[in-house]
Structures are given as structure tokens and as C-alpha cells.
Write a protein that binds this DNA or RNA. Structure first.
Lengths: 332, 332
DNA sequence: TTGTAAGCGTTATCAA
DNA sequence: TTGATAACGCTTACAA
């Protein structure tokens, strides 16, 4: 099955007894080819195990049919669902997806974006918060998926964090909790989620309240532990905690365990993002699903539209999240 | 910063007042270019924001300087460390890495390998267990990283699962446990890990023993729970359990919690792979680190060697794992 | 419906 | 040290 040098379109043409153009037409599924020639070409392709060179195709053609996806870090699992959505929207339209995280080809390219520009991608998807110094030419179609810092001329498709915060509030209030706590970090997403929570609690008829602990630095498990510690030290009356994300929620859970408090009997805990972690039976964390698949699909569609018409105004789409109740939250 | 059409080598040549060949030489860091011309070219490149087209480069050049990495699934986080190792070995040698999971461009390419062949990659890294039906030409340099099913002419760099099993045994025996349990699945890795465990226990002076539960199907959290259940039902004397991987260990943990057994006071538990999950404070799972970074580096080096000399015989390298003790194991 | 020929943006081979 | 010029493998008018 393996030859030395890969077959070229010339080899196929020669073997099928036609011109290279005819082979090219068959490759592009042109209807204006006689069945007879088509079959001959297909047969030759099979026999030679021919595969068009993407380099030659994108060099000769007018479009590269390639989309670059920039991830901040392969460690942040949420991109997996995002990719699923992007695939649905882009791949099925004949676009090839190329993914790179911030470090993938550093040393060769100054940044993943540089690499994509060299590849002459037709559009770029930034997954998550865009780096501030991404030098993307104004003419390149870009959509930010899941991030909030709007790039100059980019579309944005993101989770509605504020709505998610409201959902968290509704869930906990419905369970009968009136002394709520919020553990977050210094980030736009965390702020929005807290704002949604507070807005809902304030307008609740029951006179409920929220105690807040915002930690400096990254929203890590450790920050979650610290945050929960501070919260309970200052507000021991709190019976339900909403963490800005699942990782911080995990930190909260471990701190509660360290303090001998049971979940959910003594304190209810919920997170945000609905990571695989939350979904495990062992953790079973109530969380807010940010609907990454939807975000990916939306981002892909938006990108396609912008590629078709680069003059389109930049839009911002918010995707409604969804609550997933598990065993870390219970009625008071 | 963004123009309409990207600048070409012609534009650069014209602006610098030299020939395209000269520009090409500068691009390739050729020493045989006068400082004066070089500066002029570099200046023009800057001013035009020029970036060589990878398509044109790989079409005209003799090598694509691109390596394809096939992942089974972006969900399996272990590839992250593997990539780090691959980067160290390949990227720094001027090779570009392209990653694809099994589904990334299905519909366009029949498989990720097909896509890589179209890109004319110089080598392929298969991360994990290779699909049986990967049609890779014999002439393509391939190395399997982290998998065991040796492809015909491929090098293999993998974790020494049997050694890992022995380490698990040593750890638990040292802690004073004599009634051990193993919870695994039907896979080569699981078998090796069990074999290592048993070999060590059998040769222990203390007359220790291992009860085994091998679950059918995938090695999931649920299988871990089931396995642990069976194990304890049949062998209530077991005080320490070694699971074939962290996910199954998580299942074991949740089943233990469901049965009201404390970890590690009543039962010690350990897993394998040292996933991020295990490393969280909340889970704190003792595990065996399979040293994915090392595997990646080894695979990259091996691939480079094979690219340089395709006639090299296929080798198999085993990387020594490392035990990471956390809070789920304790002295009896 | 098919073939001819001119690019696409580079590298590589010669000469100069 | 530099510059023509021919590939590289394909697409795409334009002709036939």
C-alpha cells in the first residue's frame, strides 16, 4: 500500500489516459464529466493510492478552505465540546480545521496566529479569552468563542454568564437556602456570574442574602479552598455556596471536608462549566453547563457568514446556559 | 497592520531592490548573503508584514518539515504532556506539529492519517493505541507513543506498565497491606499492570495475596465502581486496592463512599496515570505517573532518527514510571 | 465534454 | 554573492 514518492495528478492522468484538468474536474466533483472518463480516473486514483497535495491545492486554488482555531491551553477541556460545535458548522461545509494552543509551534511561529497566517487560513476562531497582543490583520475574519474581551473587529459568541448566575440563584433559593455564598476570582466571567446571582437574590421575596469572597490570582482549586475558608469564617450562617467555576468548587469541597462539614447535608455547593470532573459520580457536582457545543456551532456559523461578507458588522451572541443538578446541592 | 492580499516574495524583492532568490536565501538564513542586502530584505519583510506561504514552501521545497500527531480523543488529557515532550524533541528541530484527533476532519479526510498524507508530513506520531485499520504507507516514518499494539514497521515508546504494577505492589506492601485487590479492565495495559502487581506480591516474603476483578468493556468510572463492589463482596478482607487507571480508581472511591468505608482509614486506593484529577486536593489520589513528557520526547527523537534513516529497525522503548503518593493510601 | 496553457509563491539549480 | 529560470502539484480560464 505504500510507494516511494506519492502519486501526483500527472500520474493519475497518464494512467487514466486523460489530461490533468480532467482529473482535477473529477476531484472537484464537477458534473460536466462523462461517466466513462470519471470511472477511469477514479480507478486510477484507487490504484495509485492518490491523494491531492493540500499544499498544491491551496497554492493553486483561490481559497485555502482552512480555519485556524486558537486555544489558550489544551489543558482546559472545555475546548473539546467547542470543537464539536465548530466541526458541525465548518467541517461539514468543506472547511478544514487546524488547532493550535498558545505554545504549539512557538519557535517556528511567534504565535499560533502567525502560523495560521502563513497557512493562509480563511478565518480564525479564538477559543476563550484572546491574548491582548494577537496581531491579526483587520482583513482576517475572526470570531471569539467563549471569551468576552471583544477584539476590535471580531464577532463574539459566548456563554451568558449573568444568566448562569441567575440560574444558580434560582436553584439554591428554590431549595430553601437564604444565606448564600459566592466564591470567585478576579475575572470578567466570575464578575458576571456573581452579578447574576446577586441580582436574583436581591429581588427574591424572602429577604435572602449573598456573602461574597473574591480571591486574587487565577481561579484555581486552591483559590477555591481559600475563598470558602474566608467565607465561612466571616459568615458561618451560609448554607449554600456558588463557585465561579468547577475547579474552584472542587477547592471549596475539599475545604469543607477538611472542616468536617458534609455536602450537601451541611452546605450545598455548586460550580460552573459542567466539566467532566463535575460529571463524575465521585464528585457529582451541581453545575451550570455553558453549552460549549452550541457556542462552537454559533461561532462557526458566524465565521462562515463573515467570510462570505467581510463587511458584516461585528455581533455579540450570548448562549443561554443550563443547570445540571447533581448531588452536591440539596434542600435545606 | 492588515493589508488586503498578503505580501509575496516578489513584493519583498521589489521593495528591497533584489531578486526573489536573494530573499529566499535570507529566509533560509543562508550565510552567503551580504549584510547590506540582508538588512534591506529584512527591512522590506518588516514593512510589508511578509510571511512565507507554507503551501508554497512545502510545494517547492524538498521537505514539508511537518509532523502529524494522531490522538485518539482530545478528551484523554494525557496527550497534553505527550505534546510537551514532542515539542521539545521536534519543534525545536524546526519541525511543525499538527494535531488531529480521530474525528477532527472526518468528512474531508477518511481519517486523520489521510489528512496527514495529503499534507505530505514527514512523519506520524500515533498517541495511544493505534486504530487497527490505519492505512499508513510503509515508507512513512511512524512511532507509536504510549500504545502497545505495535504497528508493523513502527517504533514504540511506552510506559513500562509492568514496572508500574510492581511499584504499586511495593508501595502497598511497604505500608503493611497484605490483602491486596486489583480492579481492572480488559486491555493490554491493565493486564500488564496487574501482572506486575502480582509478580511482586507473590515474591514478597510476607505471604501476601491479590484478589482480582477484571471488568468487561471500557475502563470507566462505572466499571471501577462495579469492580470494587465485586472485589469486596468476594474478598472483604482486602485493605488496599490498585486500580488499572485513575478513572477506575475514582469509581472505586465513590463505591467505597457509598458503602460507608473511609479512605484511607478502612481501605487504601491507588490508580495509574497520574491524571490532573488525581492531583487535585479534593481527590488526592495516589497514582503512578506514566511520564508522558518523557514518552513524548523519546518518541520525537526516535521519529527524527527514522526520518533521517528510514531503514532503521523498529525498536521498542519502555519508560520507567514513577509513584506519586497522596492521601488515598496509608499504613495499615 | 475535454485539453492546453498560464499561473499560484516558493525552492533549487545553474550561470554569471 | 547574486540573479535567471525551471520545477513543485494543482486550479482555472480559455480553446477546441
Amino acid at each position: 500500500m505504500g510507494a516511494g514518492k506519492p502519486a501526483t495528478i500527472y500520474d493519475v492522468a497518464a494512467r487514466a489516459g486523460v489530461s490533468k484538468s480532467l482529473v482535477s474536474l473529477v476531484l472537484q466533483r464537477s458534473p460536466r464529466v462523462s461517466q466513462q472518463r470519471r470511472d477511469a480516473v477514479l480507478k486510477a486514483i484507487q490504484e495509485l493510492d492518490y491523494r491531492p497535495s493540500t499544499a498544491a491545492v491551496s497554492l493553486a486554488g483561490t481559497r485555502s478552505r482552512t480555519i485556524g482555531v486558537v486555544l489558550d491551553d489544551f489543558r482546559n477541556q472545555w475546548f473539546v465540546d467547542l470543537l464539536t460545535g465548530l466541526r458541525e458548522a465548518l467541517q461539514d461545509q468543506g472547511h478544514r480545521l487546524v488547532v493550535a494552543d498558545r505554545f504549539l509551534n512557538t519557535g517556528l511561529d511567534a504565535s499560533p496566529v502567525e502560523g495560521f497566517l502563513s497557512m493562509r487560513v480563511e478565518g480564525i476562531v479564538i477559543a476563550g479569552e484572546p491574548d491582548t497582543d494577537l496581531a491579526i490583520p483587520a482583513s482576517m475574519p475572526v470570531v471569539v468563542a467563549g471569551g468576552r474581551a471583544a477584539l476590535p473587529r471580531a464577532d463574539t459568541v459566548a456563554n451568558d454568564d449573568r444568566a448562569g448566575g441567575r440560574m444558580a440563584a434560582d436553584h439554591l433559593l428554590t431549595l430553601g437556602h437564604t444565606r448564600l455564598g459566592f466564591v470567585g476570582a478576579r475575572s470578567a466571567a466570575s464578575d458576571e456570574r456573581r452579578a447574576g446571582l446577586e441580582a436574583r437574590v436581591v429581588s427574591a421575596p424572602s429577604g435572602a442574602s449573598v456573602a461574597v469572597s473574591v480571591q486574587p490570582g487565577e481561579p484555581t482549586e486552591e483559590a477555591g479552598s481559600r475563598g470558602l475558608g474566608q467565607l465561612l469564617d466571616e459568615h458561618p450562617e451560609v448554607t449554600a455556596v456558588f463557585a465561579a467555576n468547577d475547579v474552584m468548587a472542587l477547592g471549596a469541597l475539599s475545604e469543607l471536608a477538611a472542616r468536617g462539614l458534609r455536602v450537601p447535608e451541611d452546605v450545598s455547593v455548586m460550580g460552573y462549566d459542567d466539566t467532566p470532573l463535575a460529571a463524575t459520580r465521585y464528585v457529582g457536582l451541581t453545575s451550570i453547563d455553558d453549552r460549549s457545543v452550541e457556542i462552537g456551532r454559533g461561532a462557526g456559523e458566524r465565521l462562515l457568514a463573515r467570510i462570505a461578507d467581510p463587511a458584516l458588522p461585528a455581533t455579540e451572541v450570548l448562549v443561554e446556559p443550563r443547570l445540571v443538578a447533581r448531588r452536591t446541592t440539596a434542600a435545606r
